[in-house]
Design a protein around this nucleic acid. Structure first.
Ligand code: SF4
Ligand code: SF4
Lengths: 158, 158
DNA sequence: TGGATTCAGGACTGAAAAAGTCGTATATTT
DNA sequence: AAATATACGACTTTTTCAGTCCTGAATCCA
């Protein structure tokens, strides 16, 4: 219940690869072969990324995909939302707010879960496609984050 | 794909309620009625919590459940793991490590995902049952956390 | 012009997981 | 003994996931 779907995994692989090919047009076929995954299925993920204008598509022979958004400002959270839709921990912190769930009157875990939701969102927004594609450029940022989460753990896990 | 299962939601409700009843024995029936959820189903969650010794069970008339672990040291992460088993974002950061997935040779998103996994774990460990059951006692901790995640967002979302 | 290549997207299918139910056994109180 | 409660495995139903298939449209090249 906190597992990435295959479609999401494939989307992350694909966008990471396209970003790393910086400027070159890369086809769905090439991606499917590189990672040995289903061509039709990864195509679905690519189409979703195209609809959000994260990548541009070029039809016809020699066509494929190319990065449109700057990888440095494109977060994992945005990729996941593009392929899965806005995913919330529980029904009530989605579209309709508290009214979305029929038992919102009785429920007493809504507020703490909303807090956790915000923290989870922050984590998914904390990694960019650029950091996935060019890890060597970003080592110092990894360190900073692990220090932050370290102090976060130390304060509240006991 | 980042949604809590109903079983997990029920487990959180149940343990929050038992903790808030501090010392009193509370039956599965009472919990099911309070939240208007399936008695049999919430019982499964309670049994999982009992197996991990988070709560103790008392059979027979007048029986039920009572808190065993200190709510202040019991995190949401532990509750979720008790009812769902250890859940990882992707196969490869579970039991068998990198070897668990057949495509670990080709895969290039393993390392970034492992980093995200650690951060997600930290978030789930950052909230305790006590904080869910007695939110008024813990306001200052919420503030501290939101400052931490705030700086986390500010550093990396753009 | 026409065939090869590549993306776009809807319909469909099989497998797996989630959600919930049922039945029986066991422990405890009255 | 009767009533109340938990323990737990088996089972069913519903929903989601993962993948396939097919038709259509854009583009390139000979
Ligand atoms: S209101 Fe409570 S039961 Fe309904 S979705 Fe939100 S957390 Fe879950
Ligand atoms: S190795 Fe890659 S493909 Fe396999 S589970 Fe890990 S992230 Fe997913």
């Amino acid at each position: 219940m906190l597992r990435l779907s295959k479609k999401s995994e494939y989307a992350l692989m694909a966008v990471q690869y396209i970003a790393s090919c910086d400027g070159r047009v890369v086809s769905a076929k090439e991606i499917a072969e590189k990672y040995a995954i289903s061509f039709e299925f990864v195509s679905k993920a690519l189409q979703a990324l195209m609809r959000r204008k994260f990548i541009a598509s070029q039809q016809g022979a020699g066509g494929g995909y190319i990065m449109l958004r700057d990888p440095k400002t494109l977060s994992v959270a945005e990729i996941l939302e593009a392929v899965e839709g806005k995913q919330r921990l529980v029904e009530c912190c989605g579209e309709g707010g508290a009214g979305a769930c029929s038992m919102h009157g009785r429920c007493t875990i809504r507020t703490p879960l909303a807090i956790i939701q915000r923290r989870l969102d922050a984590v998914l927004q904390s990694m960019t496609v650029a950091q996935m594609a060019f890890p060597d450029d970003n080592l110092e940022q990894y360190v900073v984050i692990s220090q932050l989460t370290g102090s976060l753990e130390a304060s509240f896990s006991n």
